[in-house]
Simulated scan of single mutants.
Amino acid sequence: MIKLQVIGNLGKDCVVNNVNGKSVINFSVAHTEKFRDAQGNQKDKTIWVECAYWTDRTAIAPYLKKGTQVYVEGAPDIRTYSTQDGRQGASLSLRISNVQLLGTRSSDGEGGSSYNSGPSYSAAPQHVSAPPSSSQLNEPADDLPF
């Protein structure tokens, strides 16, 4: 089994399609890495990953907007093709098994460098219990456990 994990930004809004009675959410994620070449110049390398999320849980679709930062994981697939001028090409696609929203670009004019936390989706609900009150504690307040 091969699993690919990608953190990046959506290049455009997602598209929800219905294929043979099943829902699929299609979107593309761009991951950019910064590196220095042999001469010491800083360069950027962007890899685009086409994503297909086959799910009945399409409620996430309204949040998958251009610029949203996401974490996706799934099984990779390389597709090869021939262009009209005869050149060979390849594209990376990903069949998504898990998607998590990491944030959205702020709209306050900061140039997209700041992110607001977006909704987080997990498999099980998380329950947070309140800390016990001082009347519920049986130990003396000055007794430290170390």
Rank of each mutant, 00 (worst) to 15 (best):
N98F: 13
I60T: 07
Q69Y: 00
N20S: 15
S28I: 07
A52W: 00
S82C: 07
Y63F: 14
V72R: 00
S129P: 06
Y121Q: 04
K43F: 03
G118L: 01
A90E: 04
Y53I: 03
A75R: 12
G89P: 01
Q5E: 11
P132M: 13
N18S: 14
N17M: 05
K43S: 06
Q42G: 06
S117N: 12
A90Y: 07
P140Y: 04
P140R: 09
E50I: 09
A30T: 00
P76R: 04
H127P: 07
Y121L: 14
Y71W: 13
V99M: 11
Q84C: 05
K43H: 09
I2K: 07
V6H: 02
K45F: 13
Q5R: 08
G103A: 03
H31W: 06
F146L: 06
V6K: 03
A61V: 09
T32K: 12
K12H: 13
V16W: 09
Y115T: 02
Y63E: 00
D77L: 14
L102I: 05
L144E: 12
N26W: 03
I2Y: 11
L92N: 01
S23M: 07
G67E: 01
D108P: 01
S113Q: 13
L144P: 02
S93I: 03
D77S: 15
I60K: 01
Y63T: 02
G11E: 02
N138M: 15
E50S: 15
I47D: 12
N20F: 12
A124M: 07
S114W: 05
D108C: 04
